[in-house]
Design a protein around this nucleic acid. Sequence first.
DNA 1: CGTCCCGTTGATCTTACTCAATAATTGTGG
DNA 2: CCACAATTATTGAGTAAGATCAACGGGACG
Lengths: 220, 220
Amino acid sequence: MMSRGQLQDVIRQSPPRQYRKKQYLWREGDKCSGLWLIKYGVVRTFYINATGIEQITGFYLPGEYVGIDELPGEWHRGYALVTADCAVHQLPQAQLDALMETCEVRRQVYQLMSECLYLNRVRVHQLRRLSAGEKLAGFIYDIASRSGFPGSVLKDFRLPALRCDIANYTGVAPETVTREMLKMVDAGAFLFSGKYITGLRPAVMETLTGDQLPCRSAGP
Amino acid sequence: MMSRGQLQDVIRQSPPRQYRKKQYLWREGDKCSGLWLIKYGVVRTFYINATGIEQITGFYLPGEYVGIDELPGEWHRGYALVTADCAVHQLPQAQLDALMETCEVRRQVYQLMSECLYLNRVRVHQLRRLSAGEKLAGFIYDIASRSGFPGSVLKDFRLPALRCDIANYTGVAPETVTREMLKMVDAGAFLFSGKYITGLRPAVMETLTGDQLPCRSAGP
DNA sequence: CGTCCCGTTGATCTTACTCAATAATTGTGG
DNA sequence: CCACAATTATTGAGTAAGATCAACGGGACG
C-alpha cells in the first residue's frame, strides 16, 4: 500500500476524540477549528439561513475529512452535528498553519480544497439539471460508493440520514424521497426497509442517475 | 487607498492581453493556465456535460479573477469564453507556484479559493430553495453590485449575458427569464429594454430576492 | 406499554416547463 | 448605408413534475 501523505499521517497521530449523537464538532461563531478526519460514525454539516431554516451542506462518513470548506476563515459559519456516535481526529488550525510551511502539506490542503470545489460543481449540476428521481438516485449511489472501500460500491448498507434530511440536502420534499425510492425498487435498483438498502445493482443505478458528473475526479 | 496585496500587484504587472468576442482564454484539456484578472470586458466559464450540453458556471466582470476554481488541477476541465472584447492579465501556473512560496501570496490564494467555496454555497442555496423569480432577482442584483465600484450598486447597466445564458446559469427556462423580469418591472424594481436595465431600486430588489445569502462575505 | 417521531400514502394545487408562433435585434455582405 | 439572414427575445396556451396539505401506520425508546 502506498504512503498516505504527510497530512494524513499527522492528523492520524492526534488521539481520536469520541463524540455521541447530537453533539457538535463546532457551531456557528466558534473559532475556526481546523481539519477533522472521521474514524467512524457520521457527521452532517449545515447552516441556518436568515429565516431560521436549517440547510444541510453535507454528510460525512468514516475516512472523510470535515471542515475543508470552512478553511481558512476565522470563525465557523455553519454547524457540524454528529448523527451517529463517532470518533474523530482533529488537526487544530494553528497546527495546520504551521504544517502549511511545508510544501507537501500545502499541496495537499490545496488539493483538498480543489476537490471540494469540484464536488460543489457536481452538486450545482445536480440541482440545476436533474429530476427529483435522478437527484435521489445520485445521492444513494454516492453514499453506496463512499460507504465501502475506495473503488467499490456497497450493495447493502444503511442510509446515514433521515428522509427529511435527504430531502433537505437534495432540494426535494420528504414525500418525494419516499415516492422516488419506491420507483427505484420498481426499476429493480434495490430493496429497502427504513434506512436499510439491500441488493443494490450499480448497473441499474447508473441508468437512473441520468446525466451526472463523476462524483470523484478520475485517478491519474 | 490601502495596499492591494502582493498577488494583485504582480498580476497587474504582466502586460494585459487583448481578446475579442468568441475567443477562449482556455478550453477543456488545455494545460492549466493559472490565474487571470479582467481589466475590461466579460468572460463566461462553462463546461460540456456527458450529453453535450453547455453548463454555464459563471460570468466575470472587470476587476474579477477568473480561474480560481480550476486551480490547482493539471488540465482545465472547462472553457472560458470571451463574450465582450476584453483585456486580461494572466499569471501563469508556474509563476503562481513560485509565488506561493511566500506566505502572503499563499494566504491570498487560499483566501480566494475560500471565497469561491462560499460563493458556491450561495449558489447551491439559490438553486435549492428559491423560486424562479427570486433566483433571477438575485442574479440581476448581484450583477448590479459587481458592475460598479465595490460597495455601490449600479442603477443603470447592461446585462452581460443573453437571456438563454442567464436561463442556463440560473437553472430556469429562457421564457421564464423574460416573464420574471416583466414581473419585476411591475413591482417597480427597474425598467429594461433588451439587455439594458435602468432605474434599478435596491430596496425593491431586496424584497424580491427573498431569503438569499449575502453574496460577498461581510467585511471584518 | 404508551408516546413521539418518522415514514408512507392519497388528493389537490401551483409553479414553471414545453411547444409553437411572432417580433425584435444583431450581424453581414452587397 | 441598406436589405436580408440569422439570432435572440417575447408572448400565449397547454401540461407535467413535484410541492403542499392532511391523515394514517409503525417502529424506537423511555
